[in-house]
Write a protein that binds this DNA or RNA. Sequence first.
RNA 1: GCCGAAGUAGCUCAGUCGUAGAGCAUUUCCAUGGUAAGGAAAGGGUCACGGGUUCAAUUCCCGUCUUCGGCUCCA
Length: 612
Amino acid sequence: MQTTSPNLEETRHSLAHIMASAIIRLWPNAKFGVGPVVDNGFYYDVDLGEIKLSEDDFEKIESEMKKIIAENEPFEQIEMGIEQAIEWAQQSEQPYKLELLNDLKREGTTNLKDLNILELGIANGETSKVEKVSFYRNGDFIDLCRGPHVASTSQVGAFKLLRISGAYWRGQTNKPQMQRIYGLAFIDGSELKKQLELIVLAKQRDHRKLGLELDLFTFSEFVGSGLPLFTPRGSVLRENLSAYSQELQRKYGYERVWTPHIAKEELYKKSGHYDKFPERFSVSSTETNEKFMMKPMNCPHHIQLFARKPWSYRELPVRYMENTTNYRDEKSGELHGLARVRSLSQDDGHVFCSEKHIEKELKSIIKMIVTLYEVLGLEYYAHLSTRDKSGQYLGDPALWEKSEVIIRQVAQDTDLKTVEDQGEAAFYGPKIDFMIRDSLQREWQCATVQLDFVLPERFDLGYIDKDGSIKRPVMIHKALLGSIERFLAVYIEHTAGRFPVWLAPEQVRILTVNQEENTISFANDLAKQLRQADVRYTIDKSNQSVSKKIRSAELMKIPYSIVIGDKEIETKKLQPRIRSDMGNSHEAYDIDVFITAIVKESRDRLLKSSLS
RNA sequence: GCCGAAGUAGCUCAGUCGUAGAGCAUUUCCAUGGUAAGGAAAGGGUCACGGGUUCAAUUCCCGUCUUCGGCUCCA
């Protein structure tokens, strides 16, 4: 996973130091936290007491940094004994560094291993007692740091301060909050420029912006935050994706079920979700004393469906699917467009099976996910989450062992690109999460397959085996799209709103050249034929220039625009303008040929136009 | 939830202690138009909401809601 060259890392890390030097020159009372190298750059956490920095201060900091770079001071490594280092931190009044050094002295580690930080005197994960600590000096500025650095301040590459935000000291909510300043840094300016352009591009593709422009969804202050409302256009996307997910599942023997959106709290207490899941919406009854919850997940409901009767081993696996909405009271600051909402719809499903079914069921699920992603033109890879040695997992260890072997085997057999994450498994079982990379190379987790050995136990589920004994089924949780809202967020950004015909809210726009009676009547007639073929269309009869109408259709990213004027009326042929990503053709087609093509593209879920 | 920033027309944004403006969009009219913006006019705002300071608040202050950038969290 290491992608940055040491040189780049040296540049970034050195720039973090240079920024810190600049800050302490500008604000001599600055206290520093940590300042690691991150993707595309670096950051430094700083505490300036009452002073709040804003992006307006960036110019000042950047110009001070440039001065330091121009001064061409060497980066010089200094070693100190741990006691001497502590004294340094006290004298230079750096309480956060002091805390880290005291931790180093006491425990031999700063417990910051997740941060990928380099400025500490020891390597990540080292636990031996440290005696010596490494520092780096550039000019007057000395910082606790293990390096490496460029030889002198003038040797860093191109940089730009990017943003500022709050960050808890050591990532803990009960610790003071510092100001985190992010910077971009690259070896040469062209790479920096490219990255800045990518950021602009990402902003243009932001699903929240496109959702507004393409009229897909909206939020209302009256309805509440994190509760998206889908317009007719947005609903076409939701419903078509959802329907495709169900179509795939039906082919693999999943049966559709329906469960209510609230349940008694006891259900979640029994499942164990209640305590582990504080983000709940409560519902109380005015008739009785019963307390209910909006369902934050569907597994307990599906379990109750399974539990309704005794099962024979002959009837397994039992596969339920339900596209339904869950409600989670996410913390307000965590909401983000469609990617993080309080009402999320899942294409959820649960399999109840015996151990010997696990392999086949996993394979089917992976097959469905792979099919779905390929039809949508998405790149993906999988995270394989297994146990570590921490021992905080529930369920039969032998079953765990067996299933982890199966999961690895299945991943191999299905040629999945996988990364194994030890220790990332849920407490109830190992899982495979599918990550989608969007066209800007950002990664998102969408589909998931999880084995579960715990819930069947908690709800005392059983089936009658061949020998008449009662056996415990294994449960498999799965979602292909995951949260449909999250999926749409990713998909909108991936496609930049250029949806294939089968998903396009409006597939065809008819534009009239003028308002004459025969033009309108021809357009209406075409519309009627499209309607009968179940094609989604609108007619633009407005008295605007043709090029303006074309522009509007283009901005709405409509796959096909058809101009209707005397030429079409005479020849009875249409010359569709095809959205540029789908193909390129200027030919004229008979009306029925055109309609047949759209119907086929829609049915076969094609990504490109069949007319080009 | 925490730190910081912001909320003015459907959208993107100017602006001011003396109750508001542009472009796009909308409507109407003119132009009969041919593949990314033809012209003109009109309508449209409790300046997020509530409270305070003031002769006067959209403007200053406080609170609430919502949004944005992060942090934390994500069964």
